[in-house]
Design a protein around this nucleic acid. Sequence first.
DNA 1: TAGTGCGGTGTTTTT
DNA 2: CACCGCACTA
Length: 762
Amino acid sequence: MQNLLHNLNPEQLAAVTLPAQPALILAGAGSGKTRVLTTRIAWLIQTGQVSPGGILAVTFTNKAAKEMMTRLSAMMPINTRGMWIGTFHGLCNRLLRAHYRDAALPQTFQILDSQDQLSMIKRLLKANNIDDEKYPARNLMYFINGAKDQGLRAHDVEAFDDYNRKMVELYEIYDQQCQREGVVDFAELLLRTYELLSRNQPLREHYQARFKHILVDEFQDTNNLQYNWLKLMAGTQGAVFAVGDDDQSIYAFRGANVGNMSAFEREYKVENLIKLEQNYRSHGHILDTANTLIANNTKRLGKNLHTDAGHGEQVRIYESTSDLQEAQWIIEETKSLIAEGGTRSEIAVLYRSNAQSRVIEHALFSAGIPYRVYGGQRFFERAEVKHAIAYLQLMDNLHNDSAFLRVVNFPTRGIGARSLEQLQDAAKQYGISLYAAVPYVAGKAGSSLGAFVKMIEGARFESQHLPLPEMVQVVLDASGLITHYQNEREGADRVENLEQLVSAATLFVSEEGFGHDAPALLGPKSEQMVGPAITTLDGVEVLDADAPLPAVMSPLSAFLSHASLEAGDNQAQAGQDALQLMTVHSAKGLEFDAVFITGLEEGLFPHENSQKEEGGVEEERRLMYVAITRAKRRLYISFSQTRMLHGQTRYNMKSRFFDEMPEESLKWLSPKVQQQQHHSYAHPKAAWEDALGAGSNKIAQAITKVDIGWRIGESVAHAKFGEGVIVNIEGSGGSARAHINFGRHGMKLLDLSIAKLDKVPG
DNA sequence: TAGTGCGGTGTTTTT
DNA sequence: CACCGCACTA
């Protein structure tokens, strides 16, 4: 116990040892949030206030859940079994598996990932002859997910116009189709669990009584449904220990509601509000920069981070003429950091959007600097793996039409659009799944479809007693996937990934405690599977506190859930000492010795789309706050005068965020570029070739426009709109007009003979 | 039915 | 620039 609590600062200690009451912990970046969470769990258990089975700890990512588990087992001798630590979705999956009948789901229900969901919606639009220009699949998906995230079923959504009435109607059709196929999307996992518990009082009371302590990580990221889910789990008396940071709320665009923090404080009459403001990560100048920037936001709960670490180095600001040059500069700085003894994996390059990574990657590649890009495609999302998974899904649940369509003609078996049309008609006519409709299709189409069904059934028969990894192998062979990729010229990697799927299954089976010879598929007596883990209390069936996964799911079902809920690592060579490239979003929760934040330009960061949205710029500012607070010792921020985006050069102004950072903490680097740029006024052509690369049309344009006194890319000042950059010039002489990007004031088309513009020296 | 080429489009992302 | 969906041809 001494060990457990020593080294905590007074606020951390206070948080860890709070009584069993609702508590809100405002945990600033780098303030030891995870430490507080895990130490509290350990403390609660070690002081005998709660048994492991009384703990429910919820996170957003699998990584965070794993991290918590790891730290806990390092902290405590006892095993972590019986504790429910997981993501919202993982925990809901477990509950729904245990109570699948009450939740009106088939025992082998499957989880759609976003890709699957989108393709299902596209299919649905087609089947119902909906104009997908008017109702784009993506919009419908946002609509459905948005509604579900608010806890609303189709009939709960109020539609005030025809457009929305149609959307609601499609939402209803979508849900029916999911139910027919026995599939649930991510939001459905939560909504279904929420409905299950809210309708079933005994069940709800059971879990409320069991979970004496509910701990929530990243509370600022909860959406309304998640918050309501928590309230349902906690009941009115629940000891909810919510940890979050309103300044790091960067997921409003996907339904996160920071307002849940103050709602929680109000609704639960939280008396225990603790702020963790001592930062153990960053040096003073970095922290000052973050604090000063975020102070520009109006809607804050209020918090100011401080450090004992001393000022450290100033934040280095760099202006480049082009994105290429920005990348080149990153490489030079990286090299000197390494030369000074830095480690590549302790250096991160952050950007606002993924499109920015290409230029940087290219430069790093040419320079021979190892790097790792986060957020790329992950293992279970790769096409070949998804195909293999779809075969497995189909074998576990023959009514999964999405899985059926994905693989029915892959590898190609002569089943084309015509055949599938017939099949879909039959399925619609009888209200059955595609698989079940196969016997109703006659002729040539019928026989090739029949052969497919035979293949699936053969594989099912062959693997009915086999453990999971062997079943996967059977599927890979029987489906012809392996052969297909072996014959493909560039298929070697894909074959390797398919083989890795077998290894992944082996690892999964042993990690989750399934017997090595446990059959992957549900046997004929499968209905009893849930037996041993379910206890009947006063006529209510509830899941045993420490029921392991095998008690509620077959190995195959569990593996398929795992594939949907944990997309796996992205391929990049982990472990190797490589530079870390990622979006600012994916950097949340991480820290590095040195950080580059790139592309600090109006329109990019803050992103142009954020201007239109209510509170959008504040969210961008929080995003920048997150980015800054990733850095421990050294921080670089860069922006570029020109940038290639979507195949054309854009001229942006530097980000407004520069005006919101403390001048004394910034060090403006004066690179060679600046001199070149000044030089360029005398020799515009040379500068433009430099910036854009020879041969660009823009160079010619830039030069021919010199005669009217202005050129593309030049900075100007306007009395009303402030500073701007000339993006394009049309016409010539007295009738010339210029498109000028005034950043936050937007793009304006001004008549050059009328508008009063001043030159702004570079 | 299967493979090629054109045009439209384009934040951020975890589950 | 790169990806996707669609239309067209063998």
